[in-house]
């Protein structure tokens, strides 16, 4: 990692505990980590190793038990719920394993959802939604509902929704986990392109070594701690 590279995510001494009944489970144990701007980082490890928890914490979906998270100079673990929501809206795009599209909305309307939080006019929202869908190769599926799309197409809509606000950070939780090999490869191609051509910093949780191979760096987790780091 070049010393002069700007660090976009800085995690220090991060702990996360969950309560299961009366039992307290420590999922992350004093994790520290730096992620440079423009990196494509893969997080691997067995279930329960803490990789998705880390992703949620970096994305401001959950709060750490201890430690600090700084994203682009902002200490996000100190933000209020409303501030954190506003920060997520402008800074992070999320891509889920199960796509998580709203079934009652068309592809275009799904992609428009994050833009409803902005002051953009209706025509501008429409223009940007269509642009994002064209970018992921779904310019001809705008009026389709999720049930009318294949899994790969649904995930592309999910990616379009994640990038429509032009966030600096893309957080992907097993984005190919529910797809066949061909569709998975297409999605990984798309993510690589977003990283390479559009400079998006991507953090991807995956169980798939072939998916992780697309990343510039892979971190291996086990029992809430960083085991090993490997570069592509």
């Amino acid at each position: 990692m070049a010393a002069e590279q700007e660090i976009i995510v800085s995690v220090r001494n991060l702990y996360k505990n969950f309560h299961r009944g009366s039992e307290e489970v420590e999922v992350l144990k004093g994790l520290s980590l730096d992620i440079p701007r423009g990196e494509f980082l893969a997080l691997m490890g067995p279930s329960g190793s803490g990789k998705s928890t880390l992703l949620n914490l970096i994305g401001g979906l959950d709060r750490p038990s201890r430690g600090s998270i700084v994203v682009a100079g902002q200490r996000i673990d100190r933000l209020s719920d409303a501030e954190l929501a506003a920060w997520r809206a402008r800074s992070v795009g999320f891509i889920f394993q199960m796509y998580n599209l709203l079934p009652v909305l068309t592809a275009e309307r799904n992609v428009e959802l994050p833009l409803l939080l902005t002051r953009l006019s209706r025509s501008e929202r429409k223009r940007r939604s269509r642009l994002a869908l064209k970018l992921v190769g779904l310019g001809d599926r705008m009026k389709h509902y999720p049930r009318q799309l294949s899994g790969g197409q649904e995930q592309r809509v999910g990616i379009a929704r994640a990038i429509v606000t032009d966030p600096m950070l893309l957080l992907c939780d097993e984005p190919t986990g529910d797809l066949d090999r061909k569709s998975g490869t297409e999605i990984l191609d798309l993510l690589s392109r977003l990283n390479r051509e559009h400079g998006k910093t991507i953090i991807m949780v995956t169980h798939d070594p072939q998916a992780a191979a697309r990343a510039s760096r892979t971190l291996h987790f086990d029992k809430g701690a960083l085991l090993v780091e490997s570069a592509a």
């Binding site: 719920d81 920060w87 939080l117």
Partner: peptide
């Protein structure tokens, strides 16, 4: 529940 969580993920505040 899941859809509401997704909206919150996208940046919809609790008040919204």
């Amino acid at each position: 529940t899941n859809e509401i969580a997704v909206l919150k993920t996208l940046g919809y505040t609790p008040g919204r």
